[in-house]
């Protein structure tokens, strides 16, 4: 993730505290993959024995070493959302300029890489479109390098690519942005750890309880089974929901290939207002 220049984040030398120093990178992929498989096998066995489906990631996921000291050890406390949590902050045209949805025009020249269009629809757990809401994206460049001071791995920066975009969903929940396909990048979870190419997404729903940050992946990436971040989600079908599909209808002639990625936020509890009801034939 980041380099040796960063101080160790935990005291080492005590037997109880796992060594999660960022520059460790000593363990083998084989070991990490073994741990990943063990978690998934246990989850599958549990499912067959009647355990509930898990739709999200595990907070306590040892193969992703940085979780060791950062996951809560006590159960989350069930809470009924109160008034403020049943609303979300409002963003509007004055917050986000339409050109912020094009990550390829932020500098004087064209970024290097495979130009892509990413498009999808944001709905809540009842299938209602999330309208006029903020979507933020950020990503590495085509060489797998982030425009971030802590990313020092020896891949080139692209002077014409920052990799940050913002947009509002439209009246039917659709978002769309232009970019270049990010490259995979190395990190220091273990020896030869490489992250599958991905784009980070930050989303707001209609309620604060629907707030989510996630990552979109590209289809067919050979790094999927090896990546302990993608695999924090033990349910195979749930992981699939993070993978965009190539969509030839989004692809444009002599310009960009297209990817489709729809997002479902958690269910909503607020009273359904008339304007929020899905229209006839709204769902696909």
């Amino acid at each position: 993730m980041s380099k040796a220049s960063e101080a160790p984040e935990t005291p080492s030398g005590t037997a109880e505290v796992p060594d999660t120093r960022l520059d460790r990178a000593a363990e083998s992929q084989e070991k990490i993959t073994g741990e990943i498989r063990a978690v998934e096998d246990a989850y599958r066995a549990g499912r067959e024995a009647g355990a509930p489906e898990e739709t999200g990631p595990r907070l306590d996921y040892p193969p992703y070493r940085s979780t060791l000291l950062r996951h809560p050890t006590k159960s989350l406390v069930h809470a009924d959302p109160e008034t403020i949590e049943l609303f979300s902050p409002v963003f509007g045209e004055r917050d986000v300029h339409p050109l912020e949805a094009d990550l390829t025009i932020q500098h004087n020249g064209e970024p290097i890489g495979e130009r892509i269009t990413v498009r999808g629809r944001v709905v809540d757990g009842d299938g209602r479109p999330v309208r006029r809401q903020l979507v933020e994206v950020w990503q590495a460049n085509a060489a797998g390098r982030y425009m971030h001071k802590r990313d020092q791995h020896p891949a080139p920066l692209d002077p014409n690519f920052t990799g940050v975009g913002r947009m509002l969903t439209d009246d039917d929940g659709w978002y769309e942005f232009q970019s270049v396909k990010p490259g995979p990048y190395p990190w220091k979870n273990h020896f030869k750890a490489w992250r599958p190419a991905h784009i980070h997404f930050s989303l707001f729903g209609r309620e604060f309880t629907q707030r989510v940050v996630t990552q979109m992946y590209f289809p067919g990436d050979p790094l999927f089974p090896l990546d302990p971040i993608f695999q924090t989600i033990p349910d195979a079908a749930a992981r699939e929901r993070l993978i965009a599909t190539y969509d030839h209808d989004i692809t444009t002639h002599e310009w960009a290939t297209g990817y489709r990625w729809d997002i479902v936020l958690t269910g909503s509890r607020r009273t359904v207002f008339e304007q929020d009801r899905p229209e006839e034939g709204d769902d696909e």
């Binding site: 999200g56 709905v123 299938g127 933020e136 802590r150 940050v213 996630t214 479902v264 696909e284």
Partner: peptide, 21 residues
């Protein structure tokens, strides 16, 4: 969209500093 199970979250990662703030 027929499957309305939620899209899973993922870590914000280490490199949000030039994007989210």
């Amino acid at each position: 969209m027929s499957d309305l199970r939620p899209t899973p979250g993922q870590t914000v990662g280490p490199f949000f500093g030039y994007a989210l703030p």
